[in-house]
Amino acid sequence: MKLTLKIWRQAGPGKAGKMETYPIDGISPDMSFLEMLDVLNNKLVTEGQEPVAFDHDCREGICGACSLYINGEAHGPDRGVTTCQLHMRKFKDGDTIYIEPWRAKAFPVIKDLVVDRGAFDRIMAAGGFVSVNTSGNTLDANSIPIPKDDADKAFDAATCIGCGACVASCKNSSAMLFVSAKVSQLALLPQGRVEAQRRVLNMVEQMDKEGFGNCTNTGACEVECPKGISLENIARMNREYIKAGLLSES
């Protein structure tokens, strides 16, 4: 396959960047998208140029590192996959492919296609946990039965990989899907219920501080989310927030 790549190049944080064009040839439809970029990069290195920087690690759709906005969509045109799971057979010979970093004020570009998603970690540190210390003598794991339905819903929310595609595809760069996934997971489990009020208030406060936009319920995040995190979670977070905001005594 022969392709024309249009890639965002930016030397460093805060520097100006622009789209550059790279023709590339000899791409096999069996390659993954990132392997295609490997080919490009090795070519660039051999020519003495700087390769294109992009985040990736597991290359099997679970670490959430890869994060490319491909041809106008987060993680590209395929559904339910991350960038690393996208394969070149989804493109045609002769295609022009736009590759851009996630765009959000809260995700500043570090270099080329690499962005800083530290905001997610800070939101987690604000409340995305159960306050339980390590000890050899917590309750026995089976001492609190949990309805399978709740456990399954909590699991579904917990499969979020923190990739940020929701923020990238939201017209408002809103992080509600990500935050609500964690809020939901813990709100659905008895172990997390105890701190539910505090958690939702603190996490939302941090989310707002980070400069993410708000939710207009367009649903773009749910469509582009590689893990199919549901909008139900956002509603649940809103519910939790209303309860906490109106009922909490502090």
Binding site: V132, N142, G192
Partner: peptide
């Protein structure tokens, strides 16, 4: 210590698979 791990993880909110009775 293997058994403690499961207790600890459940206490943290790790959503392990469960049966209809609510047990792991």
């Amino acid at each position: 210590v293997s058994a403690n791990i499961i207790d600890q993880c459940v206490a943290q909110g790790v959503p392990f698979a469960r049966e209809y009775g609510g047990l792991l």
